[in-house]
Design a protein around this nucleic acid. Structure first.
Length: 564
RNA sequence: CGGGGUGUGGCGCAGUCGGCUAGCGCGCAGCGUUUGGGACGCUGAGGUCGGAGGUUCAAGUCCUCUCACCCCGACCA
């Protein structure tokens, strides 16, 4: 491809609000263009890279035994009502109607459709296991698109679904795809971490995410320095320790004038924060929930939401709390009624806690669970923090930020039971098919590669997914034969099967070098009067500082050995 | 949805105590000089200032409504 003909121009300046590296670089390189919030056009260079990534994904899915198919983007709303996920997805579903006013959604994912498909094509254990996948556009009306391609509303996703007869089968499929994912990230030049994750709207019990560590990532990863276990903060569990307190003592009131927050209460009564109980209020599907947790800990809202099995969860406002008859600053689970109480399991870590008294400016000493209060739910809802202790090995947690470039789920029988996807086993018994789901965001993966492979000059594409392999950079001068040799080089290399971007513009050297660096093509060939004096040209890798002179007649074989 | 902010040629921005033909840099077109890390000169094209309504002799600038986009939080590949 000649640069004078390529659609898309490099930009000298980009909007100040693009603050993520990948967003900046992809804009600057003229590879993407925003059409609306979270909706992008991909120009030829970006498209070539996306195509290469898809090729690698496809190859690994096929090697793992996957069969590619294609499902529709337009899906009947009824399908989503059947699974109940129209409510779970809520406003992230893009809605539309046909001319008969039948309601449809633009597919945000395809569990329902594929389960339907499998139901009609699988009757026997002989039809299983199955690994089915597609690479296709997904639509999610995200509340807040951000950071260029990292979080968008329309995107290409590779989604694979596994179907097995039982748990062991699911585990085998899961491990197989997990391995395929590791292979494909590596082939794309990405370093990823495998972390334990929350299952979210897909459901199921076990799930892992593939994370690319970078400051601009949206997710927080918790890493144990000792045992190297990793988890998304949404999922991570830390050891809370026993805080003691001795034998339960009789409960007593204390006056606490002018103190409200946990810090103030603890200071006033001269006890450590972990000897207090804190009340936090949430609205779960418009109902007030009373959450109790040890004073030194924070609530993990994802865990809380999971424990409540609610659709919507948010902090309650002060007004809502007061309206429910709660005394602000002295709220207590003791003697509360008519409100659902959820307690973190840390309330069992000690005895004789300080808690509110549900009376203004009054607290209680020696509050004990379950003697003094009950909870409908008691489970782990604590948010892990840096410096916390790992429950596995007593190591220390550290945090990093990451971009989720893949997510895999052991889903189980949720969809197959709901939608009636059953098979007959050897003995003639009917069972629901056991399912797994595996997703990769292709555009996000590309952006993550840029996040991980760049310098202050621009992108450094890994050879495997670079839009072109070689950049020919002729430095023209009147009366020289640079032009003639450059043209011949372009023809020869292209004929030799190499993917070549030819900078045939009459630009100054500085402009060309800067654009070459920005576009990040792995190999740059500079040809100038200077190199021609030695019948050679200059070969430089984008990823390295040094360059070398290579005789003209050797360059084709040389590149071949480097690239193929 | 809550909080903060921005809309002015293709791109990045200035102009907002109302006042004259709306500016600057980049890019773009033509001519000439340049050519190893974003060259220079001359000439030129290109904007109903996000949209609607209003106030005024006069609106990019003030008022009302509205739309879009960005950033921070609740969601996810």
């Amino acid at each position: 491809m000649r640069l004078t003909q390529l659609f898309g121009k490099t930009q000298r300046e980009i909007p100040a609000e693009a603050d993520t590296i990948s967003h900046q670089l992809l804009l600057k390189a003229g590879m993407i263009r925003q059409v609306a919030a979270g909706i992008y056009s991909y120009l030829p260079l970006a498209w070539r890279t996306l195509t290469r990534i898809e090729r690698i994904i496809r190859d690994e899915m096929d090697k793992a035994g996957g069969q590619e198919l294609r499902m529709p983007s337009i899906q009947p709303l009824e399908l989503w009502q059947e699974s109940g996920r129209d409510l779970i997805l809520g406003k992230t579903l893009f809605n539309l109607s046909d001319r008969r006013e039948h309601k449809f959604v633009l597919g945000p994912t395809h569990e329902e459709v594929i389960t339907e498909l499998v139901k009609h094509n699988v009757q026997s254990y002989r039809d299983l296991p199955l690994l089915l996948y597609q690479i296709q556009t997904k639509f999610r009306d995200e509340p807040r698109p951000r950071a260029g391609l990292i979080r968008v509303r329309e995107f290409t996703m590779k989604d694979l679904y596994s179907f097995d007869t039982d748990e062991e089968g699911l585990n085998r499929s899961y491990d197989r795809i997990l391995q395929a994912y590791q292979n494909l990230y590596e082939r794309c030049g990405l370093t990823t971490l495998l972390v334990e994750a929350d299952s979210g709207a897909i459901g199921g019990k076990e799930s892992h995410e593939f994370m690319v560590v970078t400051e601009s990532g949206e997710d927080e990863i918790v890493l144990c320095e000792d045992c190297q276990s990793m988890a998304n903060v949404e999922k991570a569990k830390s050891a809370k320790g026993e805080v003691g307190g001795g034998e339960p003592l009789p409960r007593e009131e204390v006056a606490t004038p002018g103190v409200a927050s946990i810090e103030e209460v603890a200071d006033f009564l001269k006890v450590p924060r972990n000897r207090t109980l804190k009340a936090v209020f949430y609205m779960a599907d418009s109902k007030l929930v009373f959450v109790v947790i040890r004073g030194d800990l924070e609530v993990n809202e994802v865990k809380l939401k999971n424990s409540l099995k609610c659709l919507e969860l948010r902090m309650a406002t002060q007004e809502e709390v007061i309206e429910a008859g709660i005394v602000p600053g002295a709220a207590s689970p003791v003697g509360i009624s008519g409100i659902k109480v959820v307690a973190d399991d840390s309330v069992t870590s000690g005895t004789n806690f300080i808690a509110g008294a549900n009376k203004p400016a009054t607290h209680l000493r020696n509050v004990n669970y379950p003697r003094d209060f009950k909870a409908e739910i008691i489970t782990d809802i604590t948010k892990a923090r840096a410096g916390d202790v790992c429950p596995q090995c007593e190591g220390t947690f550290t945090f990093s930020r990451g971009i989720e470039v893949g997510h895999i789920f052991k889903v189980g029988t949720f969809y197959s039971e709901k939608q009636g996807a059953f098979f007959i086993d050897r003995s003639g018994q009917s069972h629901p098919v056991v399912m797994g789901c595996y997703g990769i965001g292709v555009g996000r993966l590309m952006a993550a590669v840029v996040e991980q492979n760049h310098d202050d000059k621009g992108i450094i594409w890994p050879l495997s997914i670079a839009p072109y392999q070689v950049y020919i950079c002729p430095l023209y001068r009147e009366g020289s034969r640079v032009s003639e040799f450059a043209e011949k080089l372009y023809t020869d290399l292209t004929a030799a099967g190499l993917e070549v971007l030819f900078d045939d513009r009459a630009e100054s050297p500085g402009v060309k070098f800067n654009d070459a660096d920005l576009l990040g093509i792995p190999f740059r060939l500079t040809i100038s009067p200077r190199t021609l004096e030695n019948d050679s040209l200059e070969l430089k890798r984008r990823s390295e500082k040094e360059h070398e002179l290579v005789p003209l007649e050797e360059i084709t074989t040389r590149l071949h050995s480097l690239i193929l």
